[in-house]
Nucleic acid binder design. Structure first.
Lengths: 238, 238
DNA sequence: AAATAGTTACTGACCAGTCAGTAATATACT
DNA sequence: AGTATATTACTGACTGGTCAGTAACTATTT
């Protein structure tokens, strides 16, 4: 039975707008927040919907289910970041390239996006094998390949010591990821809370470079060459 | 209304035994498995009960709720491991002590207990602030204190380069934890699956020691002194 | 018999996913 | 221009199932 039209609709105050173009992005952003706060398994679609400013049903117009929503979220963040990195670390000496990569990686790790994703990956992804496979292939493998390629060039050029590039890449990822996560102190771990982002990055960078440079901390200091790893750390020290 | 006593019980075949001494441990062990498989939020008390060979209600005789059960689990594993480490790294040069600590830490990280705990800590603990606080104080802080103390002695003795011991300890934890988790490949991350535990440990140890020794990879090699970090890696290479 | 250890059935809250209905926009017709 | 009609985007109450925690009862031990 048809509605009794109450009055002419007031053009200026619709309860909601149709915005089919924007919905998926809105929902993914909300999902990122909520997944990050509650975990993958624990996040409620209702909350995601509210934060996106839509109703729960709307989510199902754009995503078949929760898992696919998560997958799409990863695609738009982690995979996009990797692709960006692959495009942008191209030029310069291996040392310069590595620095660019480290800096970019750190920035990514420090973004709210990453800490969320990595917590989910580490904490819950083993419950979703196909999601885990997806992440391993699209993010982990590609990231290690990118980094180890740079390191290999550095080793060949004599800028880094003889070290298996894949191992070195893995160590870099380990240092960056863990420090990034700790820095993030999702709770109150009194670990790095009082340090600035930039400082933690420098600590990681110096430690790492010390381990892969051929003559770190040694005679190079004596013969006047700029030996310290601080050499290629820019001076945005505030 | 009072029960009608059916008959005398047959003494020789009790359906179950009272074992109040064993229950808590049984339950914790089962919880460790189930939490590890399902995550903290997703684990079902019913499953834990079944795996422990008791009924769900029994759990509530010994633990007030799920969270406290988890807390007790952490107490009995991580805290116990730290305490053990605090007791056992006492003697020898700082380098030797550090090696013992690294080895012990690696063994712990590689135990099934740890990967479970760390996944939970990283993935879900921020949802439980008081648990997070507990973990930060009882495990993280104590662990870092132990490691940084050893490193400080090494720096003072000139065995390690000048480095903030707290930073160095953090980096060691980062390397150990991440490699331990990856090695564990809870899913199918094609990262370290084909390597042996011992090999991964050596990779981590060599990389780390290279970064904290004063003259790593440098002239020390030339003057006949045993310079390489493999020096203090025992030969249980199988 | 009393005390203690354990079980089972139940409750109330919670949530992913669905679907009948409604509001906003587009189009066709005056 | 306005008005009727069709189409699409979106809503939110509902369903079916799950599970933590509880209460009422039963078995074992002393």
């Amino acid at each position: 039975m048809p509605r009794t039209k109450p009055a002419k609709s007031v053009k200026s105050a619709p309860k909601w707008r149709r915005r089919p173009e924007h919905r998926p992005q809105q929902i993914i952003e909300a999902a990122l927040e909520v997944f990050g706060e509650c975990g993958l398994a624990n996040a409620r679609l209702q909350d995601i919907a509210e934060r996106a400013g839509v109703s729960k049903g709307t989510i199902y117009l754009y995503f078949p289910n929760k898992e696919e929503l998560f997958r799409e979220m990863v695609r738009q963040t982690a995979v996009a970041a990797i692709e960006y990195a692959e495009r942008t670390v191209g030029s310069g000496t291996p040392t310069e390239q590595l620095y660019v990569a480290m800096r970019g990686y750190w920035n990514f790790v420090r973004s709210p996006v990453f800490s969320t994703i990595y917590r989910l990956v580490l904490g819950e992804l083993h419950q979703f094998p196909d999601l885990a496979k997806f992440y391993a292939d699209e993010v982990v493998s590609r990231g290690l390949k990118l980094l180890s390629g740079i390191i290999r060039k550095g080793v060949d050029a004599g800028e880094f010591r003889e070290i298996d590039p894949m191992i070195a890449a893995r160590m870099l990822v380990a240092l960056t990821v863990m420090n990034g996560i700790w820095r993030d102190e999702y709770t109150g771990v009194p670990l790095l809370c009082d340090k600035k982002d930039e400082q933690v990055f420098q600590e990681v960078a110096q430690f790492y470079l010390h381990s892969i440079t051929p003559f770190a901390g040694c005679s190079a200091q004596a013969d006047g060459a700029p030996s310290d790893t601080t050499l290629f750390i820019p001076s945005n020290n505030d």
